[in-house]
Amino acid sequence: MERALVERARSGDRDAFDALVRSRVDAVYRTSLAILGDSADAADAAQETFVSAWCHRDALRDPDAFDAWLSRINLNACRAQLRRRGRTRIREIRLLDPLDDREPASPERSLADRTADSDAFDRAFGRLSVDDRAVLVLHHLQNRPVSEIAAALGAPQGTVKSRLHRARAALESALAKESR
């Protein structure tokens, strides 16, 4: 059923494609939102994903791989969205007083402790590359199997595993910087 819908969409059937959009727009938007952290950017990325998918539907070879293909386009759209966002001009002022007696950052502090602060988490997550963000979202949030993540990223499964470790380490490092 689903395969037939994808095949019809690929052959240019707008009704079929519309049905695919309606069934997936929520997931695509939420993935974009988790990666980009901004609802307007996420909506733009979602729109761009489906427009691109429609325009380049001929590039889909295997109808069964539609979701992986769409995920990949979505990640490219997120990447483009971040590029379009341009140089971020952030003025960060850190206030520090000699009487500040907070604890120094501890490497033993767990990731869970560090992730408890939503603002710090968002800032730390924002330091990661899109690929690192994507792999964390696909694995830790969406619990997708490595094979699916590999297909979505267009990377070998071994690479996905190492990226998962690397992305997590990068996040921990970024959180440590935020907690200093």
Partner: peptide
Amino acid sequence: PVDQGLRAQLARRS
């Protein structure tokens, strides 16, 4: 393994 703290934050973001 899926990290529940990380998962909660990502769920909040999305």
